[in-house]
Each structure stands twice: as structure tokens, then as C-alpha cells.
């Protein structure tokens, strides 16, 4: 406790600097530097222009559209927050929130835990497991639309489907319409999405484990630590930065999921696999209610920001 207090005091003294005005000085220095280097502005302007075109403009335009009632190619009508009010009273949208939550938690849990587990295993024999890691990571590079079509053939409702035929080895004649059953369709999509997504957590966690200094492991070994203890007290805690990044990336990807759902079920049956991302597509692209779809997009954007901003702040806090 006393050490912590001392640490805190030391940090505090470093930040507040000796004589009052220490906080102002760096700002003044920064201002002077920017003023002195117009070249800096010249260099930053292309980035600012690109950022404005690719990020700021679409963002502002989406928010603007969300306040309009637009049907098809007809003229937009300003309705204020009407789309937002309608969204939260729309049972279809409320259903998508729940589906998105299940899908996001499901895929993130499966991909990250499986990826982390495989990374732990691979770290015991990094050279020999290289082909294995490459193969798993290759699935991450396959487009979700393509992998979706592969999963459609595996999940065919008749006995010709791979899953049904494997189960049929133990239960002859077995045939279940996995994607046609509202109780199994979402889980099948979670499995399909996780299959292609497990490569990234595997690589991130593997990289985190590989970054553990060899001296730490050697010291533990010299101190007589058993492999399980090394794993529990060194490898697991020190792989956590990789796990955190993997969770963050997976959460964001799952929240915006669309391709795999579009290909496998089209949001059905009876909207049981419709996530916010798919709802957004359906409203904006199929029904062309751009304003309503834009409002759903803004809601999704807020959800993404709620997750990403604390993570970005946390990751940036230690940056030099």
C-alpha cells in the first residue's frame, strides 16, 4: 500500500512538474511548433481531406438521413426523431437487438476461447504447428459469402448434407433442416461465423505468448515451476493482451455481421436470425427506406462506439 502511494506520488510529481505553469509550457511549445512548421499542416492536409471524405462525410450524411422519411426513390420528408421513435416501438427491430446480442456473444466466446486454447497448445511446439496455424488462419481469409455457400451445402436439410450424413452414421435416415428450424438456425450461423473467425484470435494470442521474454520462462523453470504452473501463472496472464484485442475485434465484427446471415438464411426463418446489420440492409436496400435504415445504422454505430472507445482509450493510455 505504501509502495503504491509512493508510486502515485512519484507519477504525480512527474506530471505536475516543478514550478507552477509547468502544464502550460508544453502547450505553448506545441503551439509554437505548429506555427513554426507550416510544412506539418501541408503534410496533414491530405490526410484530413481523405478522412473528411471517407469518414466524416458518410457519418454526417447517415445521421442527416436518419431524420428523414424516404420511401424508394421518392422525395425525402423531414420527420425529426420519428425514425428513432418508430425503431424502438418496432417489434422486428427489438427482436434484432436480442439476436445481435446472442450472435455477438456466441461468436466472440467461441472464436476467442477456441483461438486462445489452440494458441496455448501451439506455443508448446511453435515450429511443428506452423502448417496447422496457417491452415486455420487461411479460413479467416475466406470471404464470408464464400464460406456461407460452403456451409449451405454442409447444412443441407436432406441426408445429402454433410452434418446430416455424419449424424446419419449413428442414426440412419437422420435429416434435420438446420437452417430452416428457428431454434437451430442462429446457432448454425454462429458456428459458421466462428469457423472462419477463429484464425485471428489464434494468431493474436499466439503472438502474445511468443512475446513473453524467454528469461521469464527460464527463471520459472529454474525455480522449479511445473509446466502447468508455468502455463497458469505466466503464459495465461501474459497472453491476456492478445485475448483483449481478439475480443475487441470480434465484438466489432460480430455487431456488424451481415454477409454470412445474408447467404445462409436471409434473416429467416421468420426473422429468427435477423441481426441489426441485416435489419439495416433489409430496410435500406430491400425496402429502400433509407431514413429508417440510417437510424438503425446510427444505433449500431453508437453500440460500436460504446465498445470501442473505452478499448481505444485503454490501448492508447500506455502509448508513448
Amino acid at each position: 500500500m505504501s509502495m503504491s502511494a509512493a508510486d502515485a506520488a512519484a507519477r504525480s510529481s512527474q506530471v505536475s512538474s516543478p514550478v507552477g505553469g509547468g502544464r502550460r509550457k508544453p502547450v505553448a511549445v506545441r503551439r509554437r511548433r505548429l506555427g513554426e512548421t507550416p510544412a506539418a499542416w501541408l503534410l496533414i492536409i491530405p490526410v484530413l481531406i481523405l478522412f473528411s471524405i471517407t469518414v466524416i462525410y458518410p457519418l454526417v450524411e447517415t445521421i442527416r438521413l436518419s431524420f428523414f422519411d424516404i420511401k424508394g426513390l421518392g422525395k425525402p420528408k423531414f420527420i425529426g426523431t420519428g425514425n428513432y421513435i418508430k425503431l424502438f416501438t418496432d417489434p422486428a427491430f427489438r427482436n434484432t437487438l436480442w439476436t445481435t446480442l446472442v450472435f455477438t456473444l456466441g461468436t466472440t466466446t467461441i472464436t476467442v476461447s477456441l483461438g486462445w486454447f489452440l494458441a496455448m497448445l501451439c506455443s508448446f511446439a511453435p515450429q511443428r504447428t506452423l502448417p496447422f496455424r496457417v491452415m486455420i488462419f487461411a479460413a479467416f481469409g475466406i470471404s464470408e459469402a464464400v464460406s456461407g455457400y460452403m456451409w449451405i451445402s454442409m447444412l443441407r436439410p436432406d441426408q445429402a448434407g454433410l452434418l446430416n450424413s455424419v449424424i446419419g452414421l449413428f442414426s440412419p435416415g437422420f435429416a434435420h433442416p438446420w437452417l430452416g428450424d428457428p431454434n437451430t438456425a442462429l446457432w448454425m450461423i454462429i458456428v459458421a461465423a466462428s469457423w472462419s473467425g477463429v484464425g485471428l484470435p489464434l494468431m493474436l494470442c499466439f503472438a502474445a505468448v511468443q512475446a513473453i521474454p524467454k528469461t521469464v520462462l527460464e527463471a520459472a523453470y529454474m525455480d522449479g515451476a511445473k509446466p502447468f504452473a508455468i502455463m497458469r501463472f505466466i503464459m495465461v496472464p501474459l497472453s491476456m493482451p492478445g485475448v483483449r484485442v481478439a475480443i475487441f475485434i470480434n465484438l466489432l465484427g460480430a455487431l456488424r455481421a451481415f454477409d454470412i446471415i445474408y447467404v445462409l438464411t436471409g434473416g429467416g426463418p421468420v426473422r429468427s436470425t435477423e441481426t441489426v446489420g441485416y435489419f439495416m440492409y433489409r430496410e435500406s436496400m430491400t425496402q429502400f427506406k433509407l431514413g429508417y435504415g440510417a437510424a438503425a445504422t446510427v444505433i449500431l454505430l453508437v453500440a460500436v462506439m460504446v465498445i470501442s472507445i473505452p478499448a481505444i482509450i485503454q490501448r492508447t493510455a500506455g502509448a508513448k
Binding site: 436439410p157 436432406d158 445429402a160 434435420h176 433442416p177 438446420w178 437452417l179 430452416g180 428450424d181 428457428p182 429467416g268 426463418p269 421468420v270
Partner: peptide, 23 residues
């Protein structure tokens, strides 16, 4: 069949079932 069977496919799968698989 069951609703689950009906929801599992689009018309192309149904056509396959009739004209290809004789099912």
C-alpha cells in the same frame, strides 16, 4: 413436411428435390 423443412430452402432446392432427387 414440417415448417422447418419448408423454411430450409428456396425454389431452386425444391426444383432439385423434384427433378433431380426424385424426392
Amino acid at each position: 413436411g414440417t415448417p422447418e423443412q419448408m423454411f430450409a430452402g428456396d425454389w431452386d432446392l425444391s426444383a432439385d428435390q423434384i427433378f433431380k432427387a426424385d424426392a
